[in-house]
Each structure stands twice: as C-alpha cells, then as structure tokens.
C-alpha cells in the first residue's frame, strides 16, 4: 500500500509496529524531538486522519498528504522554540478526540467511515476545547500549505502553485529559519 493511500484511508488492522514505521516515514523529522516523545504512533495516526479529513487530497488539488502536513506539524511540535503549552494542547486534543470517538462509536476514530468522521468532528466542534483544537490543527495545515518549503511542508511550492501565489524573494535559507536567527 502506498503511503499516500494509507494515510488517506487511515487504514485498519495494521500492527502498531508497522503503523509507527509509516508515521515515522511521514514525519521524517530532521529535528531532535524530545518534546514529542509522549506522542504515540496512535496519536500521530489520529492527527493524520483529522488532517486528511479537513484538507482532503483530490485528483487535481493537493491535500494534507501532498503538502506534508503531518511532517510539518511534527517539525513544529519537535522544535525547542515551540511553546510547550502548544505541544501539550495538541497532544491532549488528540487524546480527547480518541476518547470522544470511542465513547460515541465504541471504535477508534481512524476506523470510522468518512461520513462518521464528519459527524463526529462536527460534534467535537461544539465543545469549546474541541473547536479550539480543530482550529489549531487546521491552522497548521494551512501553514504547511503556504509557508516556505524550508519548514517541511509545501514541497516544491505545491501549495503556492495551486493557489497561484507568488512567494517573495529572498526566501529563507535553512540556516536562517525563524528560530535560528
């Protein structure tokens, strides 16, 4: 199964070992990540599933997979410059969504159908905490779509091309990313 297909369908029945391998391949972080150690493969999997639901891939347009939204988010969360409160918030939100799914459907979020996911996320949105978490996840998806590829999303400017957006010059080199200056 291709990584893209896997992430699109957030497939079922995989062992946690293979899940971990695939998620790690997706995030392939170049930053040491002590702050994200508490995120289990299951956490990454549910976050990926939500990203893919709120920003789906289509034939002609990039979705969360193509813009490397999971890798981008991982880089952000693993960055020592990131406010630990934000890391904690994203982690706790993914756990709450898992519990919410299991309470309402008795199965993990990642095993729900697309329609069931939509319904569940809309219900999750009615909770203030859930809404804030979904806005946050969407925010980092949009960053992954439209910030400079040097940050790990928007590979080869795929998001810019889709929206006919012109990036400004000079663009940030890797040694002058925002936390390095």
């Amino acid at each position: 199964m291709k990584r893209r297909d896997f992430l699109l369908t957030s497939g079922t029945g995989l062992s946690s070992l293979s899940l971990s391998g695939i998620v790690n391949a997706a995030i392939c972080s170049d930053i040491p990540a002590p702050s994200v150690r508490e995120f289990t493969p299951q956490d990454w999997h549910i976050i990926a599933a939500v990203q893919n639901h709120i920003f789906p891939s289509e034939d002609q347009t990039p979705g969360a997979v193509e813009i490397q939204a999971l890798r981008y988010l991982h880089n952000y969360l693993a960055n020592p410059a990131t406010d630990p409160e934000n890391v904690k918030f994203i982690h706790s939100g993914s756990r709450q969504l898992q519990q919410f799914a299991e309470k309402n459907h008795s199965i993990p979020f990642t095993q729900l159908s697309i329609d069931e996911r939509e319904k569940l996320l809309r219900e999750f949105e009615t909770r203030p905490e859930g809404r804030r978490w979904l806005i946050t996840i969407l925010n980092y998806v949009l960053e992954s779509l439209l910030t400079d590829p040097v940050y790990g999303g928007n590979p080869d400017g795929i998001g810019w091309q889709w929206l006919e957006h012109r990036a400004g010059e000079p663009r940030p080199p890797a040694n002058k990313r925002y936390w390095l200056l």
């Binding site: 400079d148 010059e169 940030p172 925002y178």
Partner: peptide
C-alpha cells in the same frame, strides 16, 4: 538583535506568525 539586509527574508513565519 542587530540584523542587516542579509538577515531579512520573505518568511511569513518569522515575520508575522511566530513573532520573530
């Protein structure tokens, strides 16, 4: 800090989103 022309890039994260 003391930035010069060599340190300014068109980087929305640095400039606007992360309070760089």
């Amino acid at each position: 800090p003391w930035y010069t022309e060599q340190d300014y890039f068109k980087d929305e994260l640095k400039t606007s989103l992360r309070g760089g």
